[in-house]
Design a binder for these strands. Structure first.
Lengths: 150, 150
DNA sequence: ATGTCACATTAGATTTAATCTAAACTCTTC
DNA sequence: GAAGAGTTTAGATTAAATCTAATGTGACAT
């Protein structure tokens, strides 16, 4: 995505396009994987050493609130983020913890009643296993994770 | 689950049934929700004030390694755990962050090819929205935004 | 242009979660 | 009862995230 588009999407959400905010957004969009907040800070701070940690975290919070960025559910202690506009599922590597995108497809709704009084907004799939990089070294001793055969 | 069953499942996995290990397991099994490591430590430590933090974390790690407990994928910085009895999906509340179980059902596999060289072990669904407690009020995250409750 | 006000940013301190360390304890087996 | 693997402990340490209080910036009404 080009600079203008980032600028427009920020301002469309009522956020000023400051250099720091822009940098956070740009780092997130050029990544295919989902960096942690700390990684984003390092990348932004490397590009402009005057950008502080608090600003990165504040901007991340603001971007999530504005809906331009999502926090990704994953194990591990560091929050991971995701700015891609396209819907996708996630694949988490058992071995290295990386979070990758998996092409989107629709998922059947839960049996009516099993959600009770809850209000459903969205749902996504989390796949687990070994990523392309970790897979060749050793095959897992896994059980079938409830997958329906094709 | 009763005490004997916990003891047996620990020993079946090659883990000694120590009072501390037992306590961690018991706390996890009596919870319908998925406590964070810190909450588990507090609960175990309240029951037996002599149980240290490191032991709780060690035991949690050992139990996950033995496959008796799973770490649950969720936003937020604290690891959440789940004594894997029955398979289930997860519902995460947008407002209060609680993680609840949703009845299990099988999920269709991704289109062949979209996983590439990755090795799939399991998959689960993550639903997002408002939990039964938060749904009726529709208030912003955190505190009451100055509105009088209904 | 200048004063003002809301929004942003900053360095550094603080809080919180998790992990590490080194010593001590406890079973089990010989 | 000595040896040794496996556990536990208190406290120190690391790492991530957040808070604080001061400062900077830009829009805009006067």
């Amino acid at each position: 995505m080009d600079a203008e588009a980032i600028k427009r999407s920020l301002e469309g959400s009522g956020l000023r396009c400051t250099p720091q905010r822009y940098a956070v957004m740009a780092v997130l969009m050029e990544q295919t994987r989902h960096p942690t907040a700390a990684e984003i800070f390092k990348a932004v701070n490397r590009a402009d050493p005057r950008c502080s940690r608090a600003t990165t975290y504040n901007n991340l919070r603001d971007l999530v609130q504005a809906g331009l960025v999502r926090e990704v559910a994953a194990e591990g202690r560091a929050a991971r983020f995701d700015a891609t506009g396209i819907r996708h599922h996630h694949f988490i590597c058992d071995r290295c913890g990386k979070v990758e995108d998996v092409e989107w497809y629709d998922v059947p709704q839960p049996r009516s009643g099993s959600l009770g009084k809850r209000v459903l907004r969205e749902c996504e799939l989390i796949f687990r296993g070994l990523c392309a990089k970790c897979a060749p070294r050793r095959l897992p001793v896994g059980r079938n994770g409830g997958l329906r055969p094709p």
